[in-house]
Amino acid sequence: MIEIKDISKWYGTFQVLTQCSTRVSKGEVVVVCGPSGSGKSTLIKCVNGLEPFQKGEIRVDGISVGDPKTNLPKLRARIGMVFQNFELFPHMTVSQNLTLAQVKVLGRSQEAALAKGMALLDRVGLKAQADKHPGNLSGGQQQRVAIARALCMDPIAMLFDEPTSALDPEMINEVLDVMVQLAQEGMTMMCVTHEMGFARRVAHRVIFMDHGSIVEDATKDDFFGKPRSERAQQFLSKILHH
């Protein structure tokens, strides 16, 4: 579903990504972790072309992301993305947030979009909040709305960039529960997260990044059983002690 081949990216002369390669198959859940500044966000943003890259190739459902001929908006509409800071549109109500792209991008009717939005809002347990503005919701609620907003587009894969790290501890689980459910339903997911409990529960593979490279790309059992690199071991021992 997602194939990343030898991606390299520079900001000016600073190399953020160095020959990263991996793949996420249909229905697979891959967790990406690594220290701050290691390039996790950059890599995941390359997958839907939010960040351009200079070398290598990324294919999503067979379509090349870096090809200038690719209709990127159309491709992006099929890939859901959830951000660390939710990024709901503050001037719109929850239901407007859910319907905007369905109507403007997919061309659905307002009624169909609203029906879809409400169904997904119900699924994340927030049906009662439809007419509120994001500013009046808690962080955990906002992130669940953001997930629902992405799901409204019927994505073929979901990208998560540290979806719980801006949340107060008591709200982390309500978001993780939604993600776990999604994973169990067979959604293809690439998740940057340090929630190792989540990784243990639903991940198929874990990728460890450091200094812009993929240092480790292992099945979940291998990763938690015997990480091969010293850096990954150190990193794991650090975050598992928290």
């Binding site: 939010l50 908006p73 660390q84 800071n85 709901l88 549109f89 001037h91 403007k104 991008v105």
Partner: peptide, 27 residues
């Protein structure tokens, strides 16, 4: 506005003009 606002619009498949029209300019 945070850079993420534009990215969120773009990630949903909105074109650049749509992102300005519906996401960035209203705020």
């Amino acid at each position: 506005l945070s850079r993420g606002q534009g990215m969120a619009g773009t990630a949903l498949g909105l074109t650049l003009p749509q992102t300005y029209r519906y996401v960035l300019l209203p705020m």
